[in-house]
Design a protein around this nucleic acid. Structure first.
Length: 871
RNA sequence: GCGGACGUGGCGAAACAGGUAGACGCAAGGGACUUAAAAUCCCUCGGCUGAAAGGCUGUGCGGGUUCGACCCCCGCCGUCCGCACCA
């Protein structure tokens, strides 16, 4: 028997080379086979792979390898989300080119990923900053533009007046620019927008079809789209300060049924009427200025008091003659939702009630809860938002809320002063970024012809290489020649758009590009996409639950409408995995310490753990948190793998915690995985030795020991397969451990017994065990496969089917309860009749003792599960 | 504020068409093999009680439904996540 330990790093390099040389993970379309597309969210090339990546890609790889073994034609590609701000920051800090920096990072990370033994098809690799990719993205931009899905409008941006540059939201810290520290201003710039709101209804309805998405993500998207159904209606205005003395005001409401409960009108401080009125009213001017000072941060909104300003203007109630409502400017009314104006119904809206109480306005309940007396029902400081009967409402009295809504809308439409309207919170997607390292927007501005798209034949609009980052602002904008172009229309002098695309655009269609990554005539080959799409299993972080996933769903539909794709939903199955967390350490001065700088004290067993720095000073052990550079609680997967191998890291990352939950990286846990790898190797090595003596000849009869082992093997195989199908990697691993224990016990028996059928079962168990662990630890899998005498690659071997007859026992152990308390257990034939089971249970001493002479009232027998004696 | 998820040993967790709670791993304790260590192997491991067999108790708390509840219903408490003045 070989006693050598399994040299993981050495063997892993070997098997990686074999796989690479034989190109076995390169995939081609094959209509004869069912396809399966597994995709992990592609990484940003920051320069280093972290353990979060390891977990993410290990999950995808388990699925990919398993599906491959199950006979699917598996597409499992990898690429790079390569545009973005960090490259520009690196360029500014250390005088390198963003492109060079990015491609260097990609090379480093590619090598790291390849060391993990992932079954990616590297022949399909691309980076979004490759001109070949962004050329096609520009083509899509032109197609969308032609289709009316792209438009320009003015929009506010964060402007740093010292650096003269636009800032992303995350670059604004406490209202100041992160570099300059200057107070950030809001500026209006002309920007490009994608008309995602055209698809609001479809994106919402589509969520119902995504039955393999987490409910949580679907709910988040549903809320984000934020559909509300209601009505838009016009109020006639009167009042002295109003220019001309007359006018109309349009409001939006979701509660037209409460129209008779209206006691005021409120408009946004940004509303045109407010601006007009302010021209003649210094007090209102001051009020508007006050509102503008309130920031947009969470805290400020929370603290902001509901304030209003009575304009003196009156609005006529549409259904109640003589009913006049005061028009306020109120700081809580948003300009960019609905019409920027509302009617306030204090009795049935908390915010309106607070406002009404503050300004002493009438509170009239018009919806009376079932069972309440309309005459006695009063609202004081809590609005009633439930259902009921309408009251105090003229022609609506006695109706339900829904009936009243319908009635009001119909009357509004008949009187031509309003109509039914559905609103969404979803806004169009602003994609302009005043940045260098992004996909150039292929548009040209001509003084004569206006905005003109770059002709398709001129694509790609490539980024210039000779740029500098030593000055603030957009390098494209100050490049001496790049932005000057001839107008494609009239040939006159014109300027290029110097904005680039939001990087979320890049990631909104990369999954489709993987189907035909080398296509140069068009963004995607529709036939290839018809075959491969949708992605069957998409895996990534929940932080992308809204934006990336919603944008991708939108892009897929937009591409469909431009003739590039034939489907609406890009991701049939979605899985959001948890983070990898690690303890945090601080020294006596409160400075963060890296795990490498911490030693754990040997406190002689028991008690709390304590830690010291290398030089012996005390360390405070903090709660496990998401790994981050700033807290220094990061583990370098490369260093770990160099010692223990990638298989150990993969196994550990998928064990213990359910994949959707956070997992704690601990050295002890990693050691456990390492011990298991060595144990698997010993078991297989031992089994190969024993199995070899009888070869693979199947005996006519199996001994009891052999049958027990065979049942355990096939049951483990079945359980692991089902667990992987359900993405329950932790359960699959637990089943593997359980089987290792049974296998070890059987091997010990085989040592002492001359039982040939047991030897056969041992050999069979070794083969199945190798298959079982292979998706998780593919290098070790190949090594075991070789040890078992195969001269093929396990990566090419089909997944064995479990023998169904071995999954069920002839006998079952069932619990015996008396009055619901477990008293004993009973081993009975699987198909034993109720009467037999009942009789056997009643004969048990433990049952007789528990009954204590009482009469048996009832005996409940659930076949194969339980007997409950009621006495 | 609105919406959602989750509370199980020292720790990560299993078990959920209501049917033996704690599989599996980590940590811990005891033992074997070693001159010793590493590695490996064996045993113990929710709490209380008992020499043991066993008994009682136990899935955040309080009720309820049921022969039987981690699971279903009602009411609390706590933690986490998302959205946030959306009329």
């Amino acid at each position: 028997m070989a006693t050598e330990r399994y040299n993981a790093p050495d063997r892993e390099r070997h098997w990686q080379k074999v796989w690479r040389d034989q190109k076995i993970f390169e995939t081609r379309r094959d209509p004869a086979k069912p396809k399966y597309y597994v995709l992990e969210m592609f990484p940003y090339p920051s320069g280093r792979v972290h353990v979060g990546h390891v977990r993410n890609y290990a999950m995808g790889d388990v699925v990919a390898r398993y599906k491959r073994a199950k006979g699917f034609n598996v597409l499992h590609p990898m690429g790079w989300d390569a545009f973005g701000l960090p490259a520009e920051n690196a360029a500014a800090e250390r005088d390198v080119h963003p492109g060079g920096w990015t491609y260097d990072n990609i090379a480093a990370m590619r090598a790291q990923l390849q060391n993990m033994g992932l079954s990616h098809d590297w022949s399909r690799e691309f980076a979004t900053c490759d001109a070949a990719y962004y050329k096609q993205q520009q083509k899509l931009f032109l197609d969308f533009y032609a289709k009316g899905l792209i438009y320009r409008k003015k929009s506010r941006v964060n402007w740093d007046p010292v650096d003269n540059t636009v800032l992303a939201n995350e670059q604004v810290i406490d209202g100041r620019g992160w570099r300059s520290g200057a107070l950030v201003e809001q500026r209006e710039l002309e920007q490009w927008f994608l008309r995602i709101t055209n698809y609001a209804e479809e994106l919402l309805a589509g969520l119902d079809t995504l039955d393999r998405w987490p409910d949580k993500v679907r709910l988040m998207q549903r809320n984000w789209i934020g559909k509300s159904e209601g009505a838009r209606l016009r109020f006639k205005l009167s009042g002295e300060p109003l220019p001309g003395g007359k006018g109309e005001l349009e409001i939006y409401t979701t509660r037209p049924d409460t129209i008779f409960g209206a006691s005021f009108i409120a408009i946004s401080p940004g509303h045109p009427l407010a601006l007009v009125l302010a021209k003649k009213d210094p007090a209102l001017q001051e009020f508007l200025a006050d509102c503008a000072r309130i920031g947009t941060s969470q805290e400020e909104i929370d603290k902001a008091e509901k304030k209003g300003f009575d304009t003196g203007v009156k609005a006529a109630h549409p259904f109640r003659t003589g009913g006049k409502l005061a028009v306020y400017v109120a700081n809580f009314v948003l300009m960019d939702y609905g019409t920027g104006a509302i009617f306030g119904c204090p009795a049935h809206d908390q915010r309106d009630l607070d406002f009404a109480n503050k300004y002493k306005l009438k509170v009239v309940p018009v919806v009376i809860p079932e069972g309440e007396d309309p005459k006695l029902f009063k609202i004081v400081d809590e609005a009633y938002t439930g259902g009921g009967r309408i009251s105090n409402s003229s022609f609506l009295d006695g109706m339900s809320v829904d009936e009243a809504k319908e009635e009001v809308i119909q009357r509004l439409e008949k009187k031509k002063i309003g109509k039914r309207e559905t609103n969404y919170r979803l806004r169009d997607w602003g994609v302009s970024r005043q940045r260098y390292w992004g996909c150039p927007i292929p548009m040209i501005r001509c003084e004569e012809c206006g905005v003109v798209p770059v002709p398709e034949t001129d694509l790609p609009v490539t980024l210039p290489e000779d740029v500098t980052f030593d000055a603030p602002g957009n390098p494209l904008d100050r490049h001496p020649t790049w932005k000057h172009a001839d107008c494609p229309n009239c040939g006159g002098k014109a300027t290029r758009e110097t904005d680039t695309c939001d990087t979320f655009v890049d990631s909104s269609w990369y999954f489709a590009r993987f189907c035909s990554p080398h296509e140069c005539e068009r963004p995607v080959d529709p036939e290839a996409c018809d075959y491969w799409l949708p992605v069957d299993q998409y895996i990534g972080g929940v932080e992308h639950a809204i934006l990336h996933l919603l944008y991708s769903r939108f892009f897929t539909r937009a591409m469909r409408d431009c003739g590039h794709l034939n489907l609406a939903e890009p991701f049939a199955g979605l899985f959001t995995q948890g983070m990898v967390i690690h303890e945090t350490y601080k020294d006596a001065e409160g400075k963060w310490l890296s795990p490498d700088d911490v030693r754990f004290a040997d406190n002689g067993g028991g008690g709390d753990r304590s830690a010291l720095t290398i030089d012996g000073s005390p360390v405070e052990i903090g709660a496990p948190e998401k790994m981050s550079k700033s807290k220094k609680n990061v583990v370098d997967p490369d260093g770990f793998s160099a010692h223990y191998g990638a298989d150990t890291a993969r196994w550990f990352m998928l064990s213990d915690s359910p994949p959707e939950r956070d997992v704690l990286w601990s050295d002890d846990g990693a050691q456990g995985a390492w011990r298991f790898i060595q144990r698997v190797w010993r078991l297989i090595d031992d089994a190969a030795e024993k199995g070899a003596k009888t070869g693979a000849k199947r005996p006519a009869e199996f001994s009891a020991d052999a049958m027990e082992l065979r049942r355990a093997s096939h049951r483990a195989l079945d359980k692991v397969a089902k667990s992987i199908e359900g993405l329950g990697f932790n359960r699959a691993i637990a089943a593997s451990y359980e089987f290792a224990n049974a296998f070890g016990a059987a091997l010990a028996k085989a040592d002492k017994s001359p039982d040939d059928s047991l030897r056969f079962a041992v050999r069979e168990a070794a083969e199945l065990f190798t298959h079982i662990i292979n998706p998780f630890m593919p290098h070790l899998g190949e090594e075991c496969w070789l040890r078992l005498g195969h001269n093929t690659l396990l990566a090419n071997a089909p997944w064995p089917d479990a023998d169904q007859t071995l999954l069920v026992d002839d006998t079952v152990t069932i619990a015996v309860q008396v009055n619901g308390k477990r008293r004993d257990e009973l081993v009975v034939a699987k198909d034993a009749g109720r009467e037999d089971v009942e009789a056997a249970a009643l004969k048990l001493d433990s049952v007789i003792r528990a009954i204590e002479g009482r009469t048996v009232k009832k005996v409940i027998v659930v076949p194969q599960r339980i007997v409950n004696v009621v006495a």
